[in-house]
């Protein structure tokens, strides 16, 4: 069963997260091993596996970025596994742009410039959102090559934002 099927859904890029949460609650009530106090070990084990798969699916589908990657994966391209970057084959100009931003971030981190790092992350988040929208359009029109390229960008942007968040974490602890 793929993640969408777990929730009884067709693969979609847009979905109502509130409704997904509600469905997650209902399915948890149905599947969770804690609801099978008197059942035998086999039934509980099966319930545990189903719940673990449900929660994995929930984690992916509730997040629009992970969801888009997953739709692409269903179309045969896995960008999230190790070596995913190579599969996206990002153009040189983009990689140089990323390198340059990264150098700026390193400099800000070295000086402890939290606010400026946040501003940089906000810029990147806007570009990430734009790339995600283009990726979704490409996925809708079944243009796998373009979707792969755009989600490749998203992947770099996401890593960049994570790095800023890790910096913020560090600064606040």
């Amino acid at each position: 069963m793929n993640h969408f099927e777990v929730f009884g859904l067709a693969p979609v890029l847009e979905l109502d997260v509130k409704a997904l949460e509600q469905r997650h609650r209902a399915l948890s009530l149905e599947l969770h091993p804690d609801r099978l106090v008197a059942a035998d070990a086999k039934a509980r084990l099966s319930a545990l596996e189903k719940t673990a798969a449900l929660n994995d699916a929930f984690k992916v589908l509730k997040d629009p970025v992970r969801r888009a990657f997953y739709v692409l994966r269903l179309k045969g391209v896995d960008l999230e596994s190790e070596g995913g970057a190579a599969r996206a084959a990002m153009p040189m100009a983009f990689l140089e742009e990323v390198m340059e931003r990264r150098e700026r971030l390193e400099a800000l981190k070295a000086r402890g410039e939290l606010a400026q790092a946040r501003a940089l992350a906000d810029d990147v988040a806007r570009e990430q959102q734009a790339a995600l929208e283009r990726a979704k359009a490409a996925l809708t029109s079944d243009d796998v090559a373009e979707a792969t390229h755009q989600l490749g960008r998203v992947r770099y942007y996401a890593r960049f934002i994570e790095e800023v968040e890790a910096f913020e974490e560090e600064a606040s602890s």
Partner: peptide, 12 residues
């Protein structure tokens, strides 16, 4: 992330 959870990852 909600637990229990299981996730597979492929290493090449």
């Amino acid at each position: 992330s909600a637990i229990p959870i299981a996730q597979a990852q492929v290493f090449t």
